[in-house]
Design a protein around this nucleic acid. Structure first.
Lengths: 181, 181
DNA sequence: GCTTAAATGGACAACGTGTCCGCTTAGTGA
DNA sequence: TCACTAAGCGGACACGTTGTCCATTTAAGC
């Protein structure tokens, strides 16, 4: 069990970090900033979260879990029951919405290779893989990550902010990928 | 014109950086390491290359230019003359070979968002876009980056090293993407 | 209340970065 | 060949961030 002061500080840290990440690019937020904003010492911060990434992962956790829940047990086409291609399209659309809302957090947690080491990526991977198998796609091994690659937060932010594309255009492009099934 | 000592130092820096990047993960190579290995002072290093990324870009430059040349004026299916889908497949295969040889350099230069800011990405983008247009694909805007996303070096290294996939499996998966044309 | 073990937080050392400026050297013209 | 000049050089320096360590505090059980 977690001590009361520990729980209180955990909440403070997450709240402060959420505000800071929203205010400026995540790599400009130092651990010290977060500790100060949370009214907590460096040692306390490092005890739970050894780096920025782990904080962002914690912040994302609930949003991702909600989508994971809907993928497993929600209504079609996101949940079970629809044809694989439709489910994949629905997954893409849902992920775009998640990116739209929390891309800054994702960028904070998943810089480059780190992305693949999170539990969430493993989940998306298993989901898409099962869709490929259900569709009878041969040798889904490499195709899974190929299909997940466009969901990298860096790609999304580039399309959205630098290129000025709309959410619907991006979803439309992703939907066309479902033809490979 | 460039002074003789300046040219000599530039060469030394690039050579030393290439060795260091090959030996260990690029983000573990400090600017100081490079300066020392090149037998050059910090100031000299920073004069030309303000950060690791710019060094890696310089190192990659010639390899990328060679492929760019082949895309523009080489034989089909890489160069002009073949159907767009075949040219895209050939492009994918060529890029995989480039990644196989120089992924560590690319990782050094193109961490996360930086990738999209290089001239090379602009070139790949223009190329794929022209293939989409030639194939009569409507609204190629977002699809271009979607199709380039699986070529992110982080994705490649993950597939190759972490998952243990072979080059041919990856090429095969990418080739399936050309169905969207 | 009293005890104990977990939790706290700030001080500290180590490291990487980027800049600054006095010194050196290549190139040019006499 | 020499002297002049401007570009190039390089190391010292100041700054900011990181991650650790340990004396002190505090929550929870008896």
């Amino acid at each position: 069990m977690e001590r009361a002061d520990a729980a209180r500080n955990r909440a403070r840290i997450l709240e402060a970090a959420a505000e800071l990440f929203a205010a400026r690019p995540p790599h400009e937020v130092t651990m010290d900033d977060i500790a100060k904003a949370a009214g907590v010492g460096r040692g306390t911060l490092y005890r739970r979260y050894p780096d920025r990434a782990s904080i962002a992962v914690a912040l994302l956790d609930e949003h991702e879990r909600e989508l994971q829940e809907r993928l497993l047990r929600g209504d079609p086409p996101l949940g079970p029951g629809a044809p694989p291609a439709e489910r994949l399209a629905a997954f893409y659309a849902a992920m775009v919405r998640l990116l739209e809302d929390h891309a800054h957090l994702v960028l904070g947690s998943e810089v480059g290779r780190t992305r693949f080491e999170t539990g969430a990526y493993g989940f998306w991977r298993a989901h898409v893989r099962s869709l490929l198998v259900a569709a009878g796609t041969p040798a889904p091994g490499a195709l899974v990550d190929t299909l997940l690659a466009p969901l990298a937060p860096e790609v999304y932010v580039y399309q959205r902010s630098d290129l000025g594309l709309g959410m619907d255009e991006i979803i439309e492009a992703l939907t066309r990928l479902t033809r490979v099934l």
